[in-house]
C-alpha cells in the first residue's frame, strides 16, 4: 500500500517538473528584453545554504502600466519556506480569538425575577416536588450552564508558530504571484481612480495590502486609498497573517521587504528562551 502511494507521489513530481521549467524560461526571456536592469546581489548575515534565493521584479507605482525596474533577491527561509496551511490556520484562529470577548449572557435561576416561594407543598398533592418556579426545569425559569458575559477567549500561540505562520503566509503569497515589490509608494496624483486603474491594469486582486517600513506613508497614497476600503496601508510592525489572508495581493516596498526579512531571520537565529516562555498577562 505504502509503495503504491510513494510511486504515486513520484509520478506527481515528474508531472510537475515541466511546469516549473516553463516558468523559469519565461523569466529568462523577460530578463533579455529589459534594458536598464539592475540585479541586486545581497549580502546576507545568514546566507541561504541549500534553497536558492527567490527573485522578484521591482515594480513601480508612478505609472498605471507596470515597469520592471530591476530584480530583487528574497531570502528563502522567509519567502520560500514550507507553506504550512495548518500553521496559517492556527495563526488565523489565534488572531480571531485573542481579541474576542463573548458578551452572550443568560440569567441563572437566582437572577430570574421571582421564584422565592415554594410553589406547592412537598407532599400530599400528588404532584412533582418543586422548590421554585424559576428552576431550569420550568418554562421561564433560569438557564443552567448558560453563557455568562465577559468570557475572554484569549490565548497565546507559541512564539515559533507565530514566526512560522508569517513565513508560510509570505511564501504562499510569493508562490501564488500575489506578492509584489515596489520601489516606493510615491503616486503622481491623489486620485483614487488612478490607484483603482493601476490595480485593475496590473491584475492585482481587488483587495490590496500595502506594507511600508515607516509609520508615515506619502500624502498621495494615503488620500488615494482613503476612499478605497479594500486597499489598505500598514507599517511593517503591523504585518500579520490575518490581514495577509484577508487581502488578495500583498505589496511590499523594498525597504519593507528587507525589514521583514531581517526581523524574521533575527528571530530564527537568536536565543529565544524569553519569547518561548509561557505567556503571563502580567508580563506586558
Amino acid at each position: 500500500m505504502t509503495s503504491v502511494l510513494i510511486n504515486a507521489f513520484k509520478r506527481l513530481n515528474l508531472s510537475i517538473r515541466p511546469q516549473v521549467k516553463v516558468i523559469s524560461s519565461s523569466y529568462s526571456t523577460a530578463v533579455t528584453t529589459a534594458n536598464s536592469l539592475n540585479v541586486t546581489q545581497k549580502e546576507w548575515k545568514y546566507p541561504p545554504l541549500y534553497t536558492k534565493p527567490r527573485e522578484v521584479w521591482i515594480e513601480n507605482l508612478d505609472t498605471v502600466e507596470e515597469k520592471k525596474l530591476g530584480l530583487f533577491e528574497l531570502h528563502p527561509s522567509v519567502y520560500a519556506a514550507m507553506p504550512r496551511i495548518d500553521i496559517i490556520h492556527r495563526n488565523f484562529v489565534w488572531q480571531t480569538k485573542y481579541r474576542w470577548v463573548s458578551w452572550a449572557h443568560t440569567k441563572t435561576r437566582a437572577e430570574v425575577r421571582g421564584g422565592g416561594r415554594k410553589p406547592w407543598p412537598q407532599k400530599g398533592l400528588g404532584r412533582a416536588r418543586h422548590g421554585s418556579i424559576r428552576s431550569p426545569l420550568w418554562r421561564g425559569g433560569g438557564v443552567a450552564h448558560g453563557p455568562r458575559s465577559g468570557k475572554t477567549h484569549f490565548f497565546m500561540l507559541p512564539f515559533h508558530l507565530r514566526i512560522h505562520g508569517l513565513t508560510s503566509m509570505l511564501s504562499a503569497k510569493l508562490a501564488q504571484d500575489d506578492l509584489h515589490v515596489v520601489n516606493n509608494l510615491e503616486l503622481p496624483t491623489d486620485e483614487s481612480n488612478y490607484l483603482a486603474d493601476l490595480i485593475e491594469n496590473r491584475n492585482w486582486g481587488p483587495s490590496v495590502l500595502i506594507i511600508d517600513d515607516t509609520d508615515i506613508a506619502p500624502r498621495n497614497i494615503t488620500v488615494a486609498t482613503d476612499s478605497l476600503p479594500h486597499v489598505n496601508i500598514m507599517p511593517v510592525y503591523g504585518l500579520n497573517v490575518y490581514s495577509m489572508l484577508k487581502h488578495d495581493t500583498l505589496v511590499l516596498t523594498l525597504a519593507a521587504a528587507e525589514r521583514i526579512e531581517e526581523r524574521i531571520l533575527h528571530h530564527l537565529n537568536a536565543i529565544t528562551t524569553e519569547q518561548q516562555r509561557e505567556f503571563k498577562l502580567s508580563q506586558v
Binding site: 517538473r17 511546469q19 521549467k21 520560500a80 496559517i88 490556520h89 508562490a175 501564488q176 489572508l245
Partner: peptide, 27 residues
C-alpha cells in the same frame, strides 16, 4: 527542481486557488 520538498509544495500551490480565509483548515 520539483523533487525538492519545499519547491514541490510551492509549485503545487501555484496551480491552486489563492489561499484565503475560506479555504484554509487545520490538519
Amino acid at each position: 527542481g520539483s523533487r525538492q520538498i519545499t519547491e514541490k509544495s510551492l509549485s503545487i500551490l501555484r496551480s491552486l486557488p489563492r489561499i484565503s480565509v475560506g479555504n484554509i483548515r487545520d490538519n
